[in-house]
Amino acid sequence: MSLPSVAFVPGDSWLHKLDPRVKLGFALLAAMALLSLGNLLVFFSCLVLCHVLLLSAKVPTSRLLWAWRMMLPITIMIPLLWPLFSTSEGTLALRLGPVAVTWDSVWQGLAAALRVDALAFAFLVWLFTTDQDAMVLGFRRLGLPYTWGVTLAITLRYIPTIHMTLERVLDAQRARGLVTSYTNPLRAAYSYLPALVPVLILALRTVENLSRALEARAFNAPGRVRTSRKQLHLTTRDALFLAATALGFGGLILARVMWDWGATPL
């Protein structure tokens, strides 16, 4: 059984062919814009843009749906909880005992949730379409140590593995009568303990085995200068995409800084 993950989706699209540094630039500029502004329309537009980019790169909709499923708790919880803790004033929308829920706080909660989703999808544009080697190479060309890139790439690679291990362990414990569907959240959390301990032990064993396997394949061999069979070359397409990204997200940041546009949700 294969599991959808944050890892690379193999492909040969224009987005796959873009320089990894340019895609990382897209994600970082998008993040700066999303964190600078607070406008619902901006967040929604960014989400639409990311989906258009990913679909144009033939990333399967099952992967996009998986990403939404992963973010669903946050997407629901933030708008629900935000108004309860917000101190913003404005038109009263609802009163829950001592808590007054204003329309402002409702929009702010919604904007906060969409901001998180848009941020995640901006980085998924990079993660879904950049293979591990290109990612590591991109980091190296940006001046970061090679080991950092490898560490990040391996972490991304093993997230689905750990998730799959958790599923298997839960199955093994359910087969021995473990029940996790309690309504009391504390009891429900505690019931996962028999699953979390084996996952932790297995994760530690995996780390140990992997570090040995890396060493046995000359990783970080003293006195050796690492080569790479893949080379990065910035093309006209990269330059155009980067310019469009800078213009779009840079313009939004500028509008926020110069004219205070987009600070509020509506």
Partner: peptide
Amino acid sequence: FQNPDHQIFA
């Protein structure tokens, strides 16, 4: 299960 480590926790 195939892997005993998938259930040992106690």
